[in-house]
């Protein structure tokens, strides 16, 4: 009982610490969540998009014949798992956000689109395939999404690095705040500390008093921060769900990701405790 009572934490010196930790954990959680979600999404985008290509046949008089020829050529190519020409209605639906529904679409000459799934076991020589399709019609295009995908992944990777840098800075700032807070607490309790010292308390005994206090404050702050984060992420996920797009639908967290977010308060408590310990040990080493 004496252990925790020795250093009363009613003093103002430490009261702000949980709140600072809460803010830090909130930022850290947002940064981690964003990083994890991007990482997860990048993986999905890569596997989704890398395994499909789209063949586009511009509208012409003999469109139907060209479609049949292209479809046949594709089906004969080894390494292609599935070939599915899109129906006019589907294409119209893809265009609907831009052109609106109704008569306009019916009047437009629409291209034919063929959705091609590549088999994961066998790679397809896309250059050779493109040449082959060009023989049927020079304006037939293969879109393999690679350029776009590459850009997206690069963007996502640099965002993830930024999130990591944010995390490092948050840790750094938290340590700095804890050091100042602990020093203030140490000074505020100098009477108790020097008495314990004279009575023969080991430095580690005194440091442990501050460690315990800092750890509790770190944990408290961490839990507050996590609660706020949970609310924020829930709101964000609702907003993202409204978007329904293929891009943002993938921005979810795996159970492992959620677990690592939940571990943040523990990490905050640990960081706070260790920093407080080192600070107090250093202060004590100045006492004779």
């Amino acid at each position: 009982m004496a252990g925790t009572d020795l250093i009363p934490d009613s003093e103002g010196a430490g009261r702000f610490l949980p709140w600072v930790v809460a803010v830090m954990v909130f930022f850290a959680a947002l940064a981690s969540a964003a990083g994890l979600a991007l990482n997860q999404a990048t993986g999905t985008w890569r596997s989704d998009l890398a395994s499909t290509i789209t063949v586009e046949i511009p509208p012409q008089e003999n469109a139907q014949a060209r479609l049949t020829a292209v479809t046949k050529a594709l089906r004969d190519t080894p390494g292609i798992a599935r070939v599915r020409p899109l129906q006019v209605a589907e294409i119209a639906k893809l265009l609907q956000p831009w052109l609106g529904g109704g008569a306009l679409i019916d009047d437009l000459p629409l291209p034919h689109l063929i959705d091609v799934h590549l088999s994961p076991e066998q790679s397809v020589d896309l250059v050779a395939l493109a040449r082959q399709l060009a023989d049927i019609g020079p304006d037939i295009r293969i879109d393999d999404h690679q350029i776009w995908l590459g850009k997206l992944i690069r963007l996502s990777r640099s965002l993830q690095w930024m999130m990591l840098a944010c995390l490092a800075m948050i840790c750094f700032a938290t340590c700095a705040v804890v050091i100042f807070g602990t020093r203030a607490a140490f000074t505020a309790h100098l009477e108790v500390v020097s008495l314990l010292h004279v009575m023969g308390a080991q430095d580690s005994y005194i440091a442990k008093l501050f460690l315990r206090r800092a750890m509790l404050m770190g944990l408290k702050g961490g839990l507050i921060g996590l609660a706020v984060t949970a609310a924020a992420l829930y709101a964000l996920s609702r907003l993202a769900a409204d978007l329904e797009g293929p891009l943002f639908g993938n921005l979810t967290l795996t159970p492992l990701g959620l677990l690592s977010l939940a571990a943040l308060p523990l990490l905050a408590a640990l960081l706070t405790a260790m920093t407080a310990w080192r600070t107090v040990m250093r202060e004590l080493s100045r006492m004779p």
């Binding site: 009363p8 314990l196 009575m199």
Partner: peptide
């Protein structure tokens, strides 16, 4: 901030 009792008990608890 400690009671009289806890003040006197301090050296024993330290030990």
């Amino acid at each position: 901030h400690l009671s009289i009792f806890d003040n006197v008990a301090l050296p024993l608890r330290l030990a």
